[in-house]
Nucleic acid binder design. Sequence first.
DNA 1: GAGTGGTCTAGACCACCTC
DNA 2: AGGTGGTCTAGACCACTCA
Lengths: 260, 260
Amino acid sequence: MTQKLQPITGMALWRHITDKLGDAIDRNELRPGDALPSEHDLMSEYGVSRNTVRRALGRLRELGKIEVSQGKGAFVRSEPLQHTITVRTRFADNLAVEGLDFDVQILSQRKIKANESLAQALDLKTGDPVIYLKALTSVENTPVSYGKIFHPADRFPNIAKARANNSNLAEVYEGFGVKDFIRRVTWISARNPTEEEAQLLRQDAIDPVLLSRKIDVDTEGVPVEFNETVWSARRAQLCLPVSEFARAEDENIRSHVLPD
Amino acid sequence: MTQKLQPITGMALWRHITDKLGDAIDRNELRPGDALPSEHDLMSEYGVSRNTVRRALGRLRELGKIEVSQGKGAFVRSEPLQHTITVRTRFADNLAVEGLDFDVQILSQRKIKANESLAQALDLKTGDPVIYLKALTSVENTPVSYGKIFHPADRFPNIAKARANNSNLAEVYEGFGVKDFIRRVTWISARNPTEEEAQLLRQDAIDPVLLSRKIDVDTEGVPVEFNETVWSARRAQLCLPVSEFARAEDENIRSHVLPD
DNA sequence: GAGTGGTCTAGACCACCTC
DNA sequence: AGGTGGTCTAGACCACTCA
């Protein structure tokens, strides 16, 4: 035991431990991939109970500084944003990943009746038929996004099969007589994942997801797709280049090297 | 005690409790603002220890379904995304909130030397002087974003004072001879907040933040600002209208009324 | 089999809120 | 004063990983 922590300062013991370990990680004394001391070791090191140690480690997980594996241990996470996939969203095209293999897997397809908000998004009447797809997108065999896709059913019958057979969405739409499509609007938010989302994305329930909702319309302005997608925020970031000045090198700028 | 939970199914007891309470909230049996049973009551109701109850409640907090106040109790969160502020980001203008009072407070200003990534973002050389501002933006007296702002110091001396005195950024730039500015690129990601961010945004450390990084350039394409801002994801969402078809009603579409 | 984290118990004391 | 959540302890058993 190097030091018995005392609850003198008014700060919770577990916060002290979180800070100490977090600082060690920030100062690179514990390097990415390194194992942290076991919970048992931390108990005796700080003279606290196991619950207290676990609460401290839980906070470090929330902060994205460590990842924990049952039976193996806790490890400093490697390069939080280093392997992030940058997804460019442009005006007329769909989300696309540059230079990497990606695969879209249709998980389910149903025909449903539009509820009020769905009808509004797709310019339909409440109760109109809608094709409802769930799709999991993986990049280099790692899942990065899980999307719920809605198409007007009357206009796009069997679009599920077409989408499954052809990853080029523009060609899929062309088969239905849609020459071009354009983004009407995109909303972006973030939240913690549901159990289902965490499982499908093979990520921690404590790592947040980016939530994007978008409406694509045809050249007449008629909605062809409403899409709500969650992105593993550790694996994907959205990139919105809005002028010709955008450059490839921009992607190298990282937040964690900025001053405090 | 209504029911003693047994660890038969292989699912952790606390997950059962999370699911039961979460379902009750989803089915509107527990309505927004309602108090949950106290931890003591939940202990006897499910026949488990207090730690187990607390772990279940902790997960409900992560999911954004409840909020907890010491001395008062746990309450169903009201309308998760209902009061979200929609921030429109357009080509030539800065982030702006429509129809609501908003206030930008400059927390600090320093002159620093550009590190490598900052130099790259602002098209400077490493070591060049940079004005570094921290700003807290509040809407209707509630903090929604906390930003780190970087300007080339040689071109924009004393811009901190100018920004503090004038919330119209276009006019501020005009004072430095910049007739117009345009967004070069925006990156968007999400993560859990640091302690500092959670405190400044007056939000739970468990609620994620949206992270936006952007570069604004003048009409010649020369960077005038690099900005890294965290947004309280429960209070703000980004809205990116990219065509003339965008309408005000779009903002009414909510994710939580969509089918599962 | 030894070591790791995951779950759970039955207590305890404290800080905060409300009456 | 009594009820609430926040923290903490000292045990226990289990599931998983690896040699």
